[in-house]
Nucleic acid binder design. Structure first.
Lengths: 220, 220
DNA sequence: TAAGAAAATGACTGCCCAGTCATATTTTTG
DNA sequence: CAAAAATATGACTGGGCAGTCATTTTCTTA
């Protein structure tokens, strides 16, 4: 998505740009994020930026791409078949998430805020289709557990998928409201999202989630 | 919150303004809503508006106030003690909500979108405290059921309250993803949010919610 | 080292916004 | 009916934004 000019840049300058923009989109929604402000901050001319990227959207999609790819490296190594039940698998995914979070805090910040970009008028449509894809993936996930005889059959798979989606995407909010952990502060500072003792609070929250979700999802 | 001048206006003009602004804030988040655009639309001068309201925020709070008051009239008549269990009470609240929705569609639209205004930088702080209040109320609600011996005791009351909060505020999204019901289209048109057959789809969704939440919340 | 290619620059366009204020119009009142 | 009070008006301020483009600077290469 970036132009050739961007790739020709010294790696350090590329990194500087990427980092600063990850930060911008972590703090502000798409429409509120200001390219002008970032460039002023970095001492880079407006015109230069547009030699690197076609548009704001191209930049945003690029960032989303690299973060997604990087996170996938962590999450993809966790395989469902290595776990006896869904919840141990689920838990392990979060453990990997914490690794990613600590090793790539800025990317982690960016990805955590992505759900909020839905509310940006300019990219709403983009996110509607993206949401549909997520839902399709989650539905397949849940269906698999139903097929294994582990999840209940009396509730529509899609409904369960929606619950899972809604609850998992709100874990940050959960941590703020339940533990008073100001996760957004960490993001503003560019620290790992779950900066407390290697994510101990997050794992506590995950375990609480599991307790709740188990009784909702598991076959009795 | 409005100035005296606003109250001196003929009722029909007041209504015209209120309706149009409810619509504006239903379609756009606080920061994206444009006073200028609305006034142009209504053929009212910028200066006049500022004789009616101190500021954009004063207007917004006024709208929030009148909508909240009106909805309370519907919801407050439903009393917990008139129902044998929480879920019948819960269900009845939604039935009243549908009444309100059909009789005051614009207000209903406004209130449904209010949760999205959280993401507006300008009023974020306002909403943070508002959220805390909602959570406190929900927590008391859940605590009451625990005290009655109807809800489980092994999960923190606050956590259950959070689940309830998160799930109930996403029912519109649920209806879009599960039933393909384009609720936002209704809002854009100023129709009742649940414009299909007196809210039949909503009640179906509520019943599905209850089925799911029951197994999560009820004492076994 | 000179010419041509690549990259950097920032003033500029055209758009949007909330809020102000001196002036003009309308309404009230004595 | 005239003076005073209330209301209406819209050009204007100062701010922000994405994106453009003619010009300058730097780098490459022959």
């Amino acid at each position: 998505m970036p132009k050739e000019t961007f790739h020709n840049l010294p790696a350090s300058k590329q990194q500087k740009l990427v980092d600063r923009f990850l930060r911008e989109f972590s703090i502000h929604r798409y429409d509120d994020a200001s390219i002008s402000a970032v460039l002023k901050d970095l001492g880079i001319a407006k015109g230069s930026f547009y030699q690197y990227f076609e548009s704001k959207l191209a930049l945003f999609l690029y960032l989303q791409g690299i973060c997604g790819t990087q996170k996938a490296k962590y999450v993809m190594q966790v395989k469902r078949e290595d776990f006896p039940d869904f919840w141990q698998y689920f838990r392990k995914l979060y453990e990997e998430g914490i690794q990613f979070d600590q090793q790539h805090p800025l990317m982690s910040n960016f990805l955590h805020q992505i759900i909020h970009h839905i509310h940006s008028p300019t990219i709403k449509k983009l996110y509607d289709t993206w949401l549909d894809q997520i839902m399709a993936a989650l539905t397949a996930w849940v269906q698999h557990e139903v097929d294994l005889g582990l999840f209940r059959k009396d509730i529509a798979v899609k409904s369960m998928a929606f619950f899972l989606f809604k609850i998992t995407t709100s874990i940050m909010e959960y941590m703020r409201l339940i533990y008073g952990l100001e996760v957004e502060e960490n993001i503003k500072k560019g620290l790992p999202v779950y900066a407390d003792e290697n994510g101990a609070t997050l794992m506590k929250a995950v375990d609480e989630y599991i307790l709740l979700l188990q009784s909702t999802f598991d076959k009795q």
